[in-house]
Nucleic acid binder design. Structure first.
Lengths: 249, 249
DNA sequence: CATATATAACTTATATGATAAGTTTGGATA
DNA sequence: TATCCAAACTTATCATATAAGTTATATATG
């Protein structure tokens, strides 16, 4: 067994960053989500630093979304999800006043790409997943018609709506797209409610939204990529329009 | 002055995460990059936790790319760059064998969108920025023709190539696109070299690559959005093809 | 007076040691 | 065998101390 070479950070670097880098490599090597890192004590011994240093390094990795931390258990390599990414996109949006529109613009490209791919390669279960979300929308949608303006119901509807789009992304089979669209959900939540308010103001029923989604799903089922693209584009453009309308009032 | 309410994490949560959330809010409120956070001691006092806890929270934020840390100075709110994002995308790519292709696919959508927007809204200085990169490519390109197979020169060429695409993204005026394309540069570096090897194998000169970029720039200058889109798409599709070819050999 | 320099005050980086509170594991027990 | 409990692990947090950067201040120098 090789003697543990203590980490002596080069000038300008810190032990924490060095350890974080080493651990990143280690994670990339293991690569499989669900696998545990060594215990803090072990890592401290291996790298010749204190437990404090190791802990801070791990916290950095957690911030990047590479590991998940929970008390009493060792840190676990996490599956790449959009969660950590969402923060970052939120930060851009917050940073720039027109950031929200920038995000909507990007989302449109990604969703169009996603739906095009989904139409080509969606598997049966993936389609079932999309269908589920649409069913949910339809069901909750009825309640919205009856009881007016219940925020909690609206929120439920929103969850299914977001779920629909995530399911489409998933059906594309492209992990990067899936992660990005997931990541956008949180910062775009506000835009969604703006868009719905805009629709409500113009007296457009929820059914209309449901129908738009249904059309997208139909195209995917029929492997009609072109149709899916235009259906998605139409849907998103309308949302953007509603959003702008809501902003002006 | 309100007495500092000590952070008492709810069950299942930790003080570190709570502090990190509080600080995130604080950052969002200040929002301006370059502004310093309070000193660790101050924050510890304010939130009623130890310095260690504050430090770990800050490390999480640093991992997310929200702040920059340097010794002797307080943590500083950082400008949103694609750097932290790059790690994450790299992680996805590493995680999934076909991740590289997924990434190329996404890049194509984003770049096409970017160039379309750039053709519509590029300012004079933005165009000059793109031009600079193209000049660099052309200059370094000549060297590649003369001296064969110098890795360092290839790397230089690559930097200008990446720079060109980043400059186009910047010219789009869309911060989200810019950040994403920047973030992709690192994980896509390997794909770039594969693509060049593929070209070299087929005896395609560097000039051809330069010409493709020139065409894109011309379209942007002429505000020809449609032309820019097809020029960019053609260029990227060729790269992808070369990459596949290189993989097979 | 202006400038350079040395010193003090701040601030972060890291280590040690201790305690509390979760999680896992293995054995005793029914 | 199935269940429960205690011991062993492991992370969370704290207090304290020292080293080593950075910044501001005051002093000396031209």
């Amino acid at each position: 067994m090789a003697k543990p070479a203590s980490i002596v950070p080069a000038k300008g670097r810190t032990a924490v960053v060095d350890v974080a880098d080493q651990l990143t490599e280690l994670i990339y090597a293991k690569m499989t989500p669900g696998v545990s890192l060594p215990s803090e004590a072990e890592m401290a011994a291996r790298y010749g630093v204190s437990r404090v240093t190791v802990r801070e390094a791990i916290k950095m990795l957690a911030g990047r979304g590479l590991v998940e931390i929970s008390r009493g258990r060792r840190a676990v390599i996490s599956e790449p999800t959009g969660e950590a990414l969402g923060d970052f996109l939120g930060w851009i949006v917050q940073f720039d006043p027109k950031g929200m529109f920038d995000l909507v613009e990007v989302r449109m490209s990604l969703e169009v790409k996603a739906v095009a791919l989904a139409a080509q390669r969606a598997t049966r279960p993936a389609i079932a997943g999309i269908e589920n979300m649409l069913d949910g929308m339809r069901e909750v949608g009825k309640k919205i018609e009856r009881i007016d303006a219940d925020i909690e119901i609206e929120r439920q509807f929103h969850r299914y709506d977001v779920g629909f789009h995530e399911a489409v992304a998933l059906a594309s089979g492209n992990r990067v797209i899936t992660s990005l669209i997931e990541a956008m959900a949180v910062p775009l939540e506000r835009s969604f409610f703006m868009s719905r308010r805009g629709k409500a103001a113009r007296g457009i029923p929820v059914e209309h939204t449901v129908a738009a989604h249904q059309k997208i799903l139909d195209c995917i089922k029929n492997k009609d990529s072109t149709g899916a693209i235009s259906a998605m584009r139409a849907h998103l453009e309308e949302s953007a329009r509603d959003m702008r309308a809501a902003l002006e009032s």
